[in-house]
Amino acid sequence: MTYAIYGARGSGSGIIEAVCAELGVDYEARYLDVRAGENQEEAYRKLHPLGKLPTLVFPDGEVVTDTVAIILTLDERHPQSSLLPPAASKARARALRWLLFCATELYPLIEIVDFPERFAGSDECKDVVRTRAGAIWRNRWQPVEDAVAGSPYLLSEGFCATDVYIAILCHWDMDPDWRQKNLARVEALSEAVRNRPALVPVFERHKPDETILDAAQPS
């Protein structure tokens, strides 16, 4: 019984690979050549109509897209795990709050920073759009920094899937020196997640300098 994860090296599919590795479930990473447009071909668009990554195909054939939806579904199917805190707990509410904050307030800005031409309307405006999106991106990390209550994880109760999301996202379009100076708790969280034994191979495959952001699923 093996999960199939459709993604690309350096993309948001690394979040789902890390979650599956943490769960200890068998999975097969099926990498698409995004630069060659494989994610826009008919075969993949039958799984994800927008051609976004990641997509997870469960052993029973169920197809789930969008990172947060995949995490929640995995949590439901593996209730014995510590992927997210118990239902109805205060800790779960905090984990979900910041999971959705990262997915809706941070992740969408990446596309604007890296592909301003999609939003600028004219070539003359591209640099302005990129600069403004980059400033918003950095400013929106401060609430995440302030929310880190554990040592080193987001929750004082310990590790959860939101930590994985943060650990991958904070290395995108972020100057390491700026991050270390301004987001010390996020940096410590990321370092701890990346050194979890089950996750080391995943992060080795998804190095920040290999990021393919135009294929990442911003939700």
Rank of each mutant, 00 (worst) to 15 (best):
T131S: 13
D123N: 15
W98G: 09
V128D: 12
E157P: 07
R132N: 14
D75F: 03
Q217N: 14
V68M: 07
E42N: 08
I70G: 02
R138C: 08
D26E: 12
D175S: 03
H48K: 04
L154A: 14
K207W: 08
P152D: 08
A215C: 15
Y44N: 02
F101S: 11
A147W: 12
M1F: 05
I5P: 08
I16N: 04
R92V: 02
L183D: 06
Q180L: 15
S122C: 13
S89A: 05
L23E: 00
G24Q: 01
V19G: 03
G10E: 00
I15N: 04
E124D: 11
V68H: 05
R179T: 08
F203S: 06
E28N: 08
S89E: 06
I16F: 12
K46Y: 01
P85T: 03
W137A: 04
V128H: 12
R130L: 14
S219W: 15
K126Q: 11
A95G: 06
V128Y: 13
V64F: 04
H171A: 06
M174C: 05
C125H: 10
E187I: 12
G37L: 12
K90F: 08
S81V: 01
L53D: 00
S89M: 09
F203G: 03
I168Q: 04
E42R: 08
E145L: 15
A184H: 14
I166R: 07
V202I: 07
S151N: 13
S13Y: 05
F101I: 12
A29N: 09
L56Y: 01
A21T: 04
L155N: 00
G121V: 01
P49N: 11
D173L: 12
A29Y: 09
R94M: 11
P108F: 07
E204T: 14
F203N: 02
A36E: 15
V68W: 05
L84W: 03
L99E: 03
E17T: 01
V148M: 13
I168H: 07
P116M: 13
L74R: 01
M174S: 05
P54F: 03
L84I: 02
I136F: 08
V129M: 13
